[in-house]
């Protein structure tokens, strides 16, 4: 899978697929203040962005793809940096 779970944070690497949605949701629920790092994310399945939009975790780093960053930012009510 393209998700790497670390201490209180999850890294998205390359393209994250629909199968990653459940582990991601489980992780975000289990952690008190999870942080999501998307710097290396080149794309993600709709299911994942949906989980992020629903849980609204802190975004540690934004995807390099401006289109994806913009869409995610809009969805989470944040300004991508």
């Amino acid at each position: 899978m393209a998700l790497r779970f670390g201490e209180g944070e999850v890294h998205f690497d390359d393209h994250c697929v629909v199968e990653d949605a459940m582990p991601l949701l489980a992780f975000l629920e289990a952690e008190a203040d999870p942080q999501v790092r998307l710097a290396h994310c080149t794309g993600m399945h709709t299911a994942l962005i949906q989980v992020l939009a629903a849980i609204r975790p802190r975004i540690g780093s934004w995807p390099a793809d401006p289109g994806l960053a913009r869409l995610l930012g809009g969805l989470m009510g944040m300004e991508p940096t």
Partner: peptide, 25 residues
């Protein structure tokens, strides 16, 4: 593509009821 935005179709359910496999965007 110039720009794309997404919006939830309905408000997202809270985690126990949140179904990531049901498209809500």
């Amino acid at each position: 593509l110039l720009v794309a935005v997404a919006h939830p179709v309905a408000a997202f359910a809270l985690p126990p009821d949140l179904d990531p496999y049901r498209c809500n965007l």
